[in-house]
Every structure is written in structure tokens, then in C-alpha cells.
């Protein structure tokens, strides 16, 4: 199958415009989830109704499809008087779903620090905040970076689903171009390449960060 260079020259600028929306969505989702996930994880660590609610939240978002969550937010909220744009609905649904996953990552990181580390800190007279800041969190951060990077890749790929609520990111742009031309192969090759570049950037970035923070040889 020959590649039509002229077609690609017209296609790429359009796709890159879509990619900009994709990157915006992905970066915003990641930034919000890094904080929101921590809030949920800390909430889940408490006893009582808050811990129960955080646990229920995690189970619900992890066990229902992102697409359905997006439909509920996009179509459902507008009906009850809270109309959100496609972009805002997509962002909200992405954050809801991935916040649950990120919370689980933090929880795993906290659990992976041995109880002996807490003991050693307490024996040196450290109080809770000092203990967390200088002993526990640095170890947790080093351990959660690889799974967080995986989640970032997954978020970037998940943004393609907002095409279903008419947000003009790469996927939607691609659909428009495929329907209006016959160059299916070229369009999908280009789209695939752009996604591979975006996700690779995250992988490489995470590997650099991991090396910076590595302490166990």
C-alpha cells in the first residue's frame, strides 16, 4: 500500500491539533489524580464512614467502564441541570475513574514500607509528621513512580474515549478524516504513531525519575 505524501501533509496538522487536546486532557487528568488519589488513599486509611465511603468509591469506579461513567456525566448531569461541555465531562469521568486506580497505587506503596521503618523512626523520637516526611514518604514515592507511569500511559490511551462525546481529540479527528477520505491506512498509521510517541515520552520520563530517586542498588 503506497503512502500518499500529499495527503499526509494535510492530515498531520489536523491530527496534531487533536493531539493538543489529547495532551491537555491527559496532563490535567494526571495532575488532578496525583492529588485526588492521595486524598482517597488517606481517606480509605481512616476508620469509620469516611474510610468506608472511600473504599466504596474505589470499587465502584474500578468495576464500571469509563465510557458509561462518561455518558452518565455528559448526558445525565445536563438533564439534572448541570450541563457540562464534552471536554469537562470527559475530564471529570477520567479523573473519577483514574483517581480510584491511583489511590490503590498509593495504598500499595504505603503498605510496601515495612513496619520496622516506622519503629526505627519512632525509636529515634520522631513524631508522626517528621516520620512520614523524612522516612516513609520518600520510600513510598520511589516505589509508586513505575505504577504511576503505567497509569499515566493508560490515562493517555483512555482519553481516546472522549471521542464518543464529540470532543475533537486525535481519535475524533481521525474518524472525521477516515470518513471523508479513503486513506484508512495512512490515517491509522499516523494516529498510532502519535499515541506511541506520547506514551513513550511518559515511559522515558518515568525511567529518568526512577533513576534519580533510586536508592537501593
Amino acid at each position: 500500500m503506497p503512502i500518499d505524501v500529499h495527503f499526509l501533509a494535510r492530515l498531520f496538522p489536523a491530527l496534531l491539533e487533536g493531539a493538543e487536546v489529547t495532551v491537555e486532557l491527559a496532563v490535567l487528568t494526571m495532575a488532578i489524580c496525583v492529588v485526588w488519589g492521595l486524598v482517597v488513599a488517606l481517606g480509605q486509611a481512616t476508620r469509620g464512614p469516611l474510610g468506608w465511603a472511600a473504599g466504596a468509591y474505589i470499587q465502584i469506579v474500578r468495576n464500571t467502564p469509563l465510557l458509561i461513567q462518561m455518558y452518565i456525566v455528559y448526558f445525565g448531569l445536563s438533564l439534572v441541570g448541570v450541563p457540562l461541555s464534552g471536554f469537562a465531562s470527559g475530564l471529570l469521568a477520567l479523573c473519577l475513574q483514574n483517581g480510584g486506580y491511583v489511590a490503590e497505587i498509593y495504598r500499595g506503596g504505603l503498605q510496601s514500607v515495612s513496619a520496622r521503618q516506622y519503629e526505627a523512626g519512632r525509636a529515634l523520637g520522631m513524631r508522626r509528621w517528621t516520620l512520614y516526611r523524612s522516612v516513609i514518604l520518600p520510600q513510598v514515592i520511589a516505589r509508586v513512580i513505575p505504577p504511576l507511569a503505567n497509569q499515566g500511559i493508560s490515562i493517555t490511551k483512555d482519553t481516546s474515549q472522549v471521542a464518543a462525546i464529540a470532543v475533537m481529540e486525535i481519535m475524533k479527528v481521525a474518524q472525521v478524516w477516515v470518513e471523508s477520505s479513503a486513506n484508512t491506512y495512512d490515517v491509522f498509521l499516523a494516529v498510532g504513531l502519535i499515541y506511541l510517541v506520547l506514551t513513550s515520552v511518559i515511559s522515558v520520563g518515568a525511567r529518568v525519575a526512577e533513576r534519580q530517586l533510586a536508592f537501593v542498588s
Partner: peptide, 15 residues
């Protein structure tokens, strides 16, 4: 790992 499932599904649908 680097390409969304939706892209692959759509590709096969058109292909």
C-alpha cells in the same frame, strides 16, 4: 501498550 484499544477497534472496523 502504546496504542489505545479504541484505535485498534476502529481500525479493524474500517479495514
Amino acid at each position: 501498550r502504546g496504542i489505545p484499544l479504541l484505535v485498534l477497534l476502529t481500525f479493524v472496523y474500517y479495514l
